[in-house]
Amino acid sequence: MLLHNKLSKEELKKQLENENFSRKTFSFYRYVIIDNPQEFRDQLYQKWFELDCKGRIYIAREGINAQMSVPEHKLDDFFLFLNSLIELQDMPIKWAVEDDGKSFYKLIVKLRPKIVADGLDDNAYDVTNVGNHLSPIEFHEQISRLDTIVVDMRNHYESEIGHFENAICPDADTFREEIDIVVDDLKDKKDQKVLLYCTGGIRCEKASAYLKHHGFEDVNQLHGGIIAYAQEIKQLGLDSKFRGKNFVFDERLGESINNEVIAKCHQCGATCDTHTNCANDDCHLLFIQCEECRDHYQGCCTDECTEIIQLPLEERKLLRSKFHDKYSKSQIYRKRIRPKLKGIKN
Rank of each mutant, 00 (worst) to 15 (best):
A209N: 09
A209H: 09
K212T: 00
K212E: 01
K212Q: 04
H213E: 14
H213G: 06
H214I: 04
F216G: 00
F216H: 01
E217Y: 00
E217I: 01
D218T: 07
D218F: 01
V219I: 00
V219W: 00
N220Y: 03
Q221K: 06
Q221L: 06
L222I: 11
L222R: 06
H223T: 07
H223N: 11
I226T: 05
I226P: 00
I227Y: 00
A228Q: 13
A228F: 07
A228K: 14
Y229E: 02
Y229T: 03
Y229G: 01
A230W: 07
A230P: 05
A230G: 09
Q231H: 13
Q231E: 14
Q231N: 15
Q231K: 15
E232V: 15
I233Y: 03
I233F: 06
I233D: 02
Q235I: 09
Q235P: 03
Q235M: 07
L236N: 14
L238V: 04
L238Y: 08
L238T: 06
D239Y: 10
D239E: 15
K241H: 10
F242T: 03
F242Q: 03
R243E: 10
R243K: 13
G244T: 02
G244V: 01
G244S: 01
K245F: 10
N246S: 12
N246E: 04
F247P: 07
F247S: 11
F247N: 08
V248K: 03
V248T: 13
F249Y: 09
F249M: 05
F249A: 05
D250Q: 12
D250C: 12
D250N: 15
E251T: 10
R252Q: 07
L253M: 13
L253I: 12
L253T: 10
L253D: 02
L253V: 12
G254Q: 03
G254A: 03
E255T: 12
E255G: 05
I257F: 03
I257V: 15
N258W: 07
N258Q: 06
N259Y: 12
E260L: 13
E260H: 13
E260Q: 15
V261T: 15
V261E: 13
V261I: 15
I262Y: 09
I262C: 10
I262D: 09
A263Q: 04
A263H: 04
K264S: 13
C265P: 07
C265Y: 09
C265W: 11
C265V: 13
C265F: 12
H266A: 12
Q267C: 13
Q267P: 07
G269K: 10
A270P: 05
A270I: 13
T271S: 12
C272E: 08
D273W: 08
D273A: 15
T274I: 14
T274D: 15
H275S: 06
H275N: 10
T276S: 13
T276P: 10
N277L: 14
N277Y: 15
N277Q: 12
N277M: 11
C278V: 08
